[in-house]
């Protein structure tokens, strides 16, 4: 009886033939819905900070450098490619691309920094009426975006210290 089982097993293997794909010698294709590295379109982004407010990995930082310029920085290192940012962007400025071969020794290769010129209201001089989405984000009491050190810090902290803290694992290669 066991011999019959063995023969059956051999047949299963033989019938399957060779299934290994020639990747990486030939590129692998991905389906249409694939969620790869998010790409931000600076032309479309209105700087609402909705993506930053909803990113589970806290990969998107926003800071106003002056009244009219807002910096949006996507770090790209802990990004889980969940696609929440793309879901929520009101302007469809984020596309989940086909890129999955993102291994790099230079972390900035996968990041993206957007410099956004914010149109202001002719009457009041502000881009949004108060509280702006960005202010709301910070009012919640959990974050101050620290672009220089690429991290976000709890608002409840009295001051920001200069060195990078345990907020982030430093994965950059030196």
């Amino acid at each position: 009886m066991s011999l019959a089982a063995k023969i059956k097993e051999v047949l299963i293997c033989l019938r399957a033939g060779r299934v290994t794909l020639p990747y990486p010698f030939e590129p692998a294709t991905v389906p249409k819905a694939f969620r790869g590295r998010p790409i931000f379109d600076v032309e479309r982004c209105v700087g609402c900070a909705g993506c930053a407010n909803n990113c589970p990995a806290r990969e998107i930082l926003v800071e106003d450098v002056c009244q009219e310029v807002r910096i949006l920085k996507y770090l790209g290192r802990r990004c889980t490619y969940c696609g929440r940012c793309a879901d929520l962007c009101p302007e469809n400025a984020i596309t989940m691309s086909n890129e999955f071969e993102t291994a790099t020794d230079e972390i900035s290769d996968v990041g993206q920094t957007l410099e956004l010129f914010m149109g202001t209201c002719q009457r009041c001089g502000r881009c949004f009426t108060s509280p702006t989405p960005l202010e709301e984000l910070k009012l919640k009491g959990y974050r101050i975006d620290d672009l220089m050190n690429e991290r976000w810090v709890f608002r409840s902290k009295p001051f920001l210290n200069e060195e990078k803290t345990v907020d982030d694992i430093d994965i950059e290669l030196d």
């Binding site: 991905v30 389906p31 249409k32 819905a33 694939f34 969620r35 889980t80 490619y81 969940c82 696609g83 929440r84 989940m96």
Partner: peptide
């Protein structure tokens, strides 16, 4: 699974 959700394993 990848075709439906965009990823082989983490369906989000």
């Amino acid at each position: 699974a990848e075709k439906i959700t965009g990823n082989r394993k983490t369906y989000a």
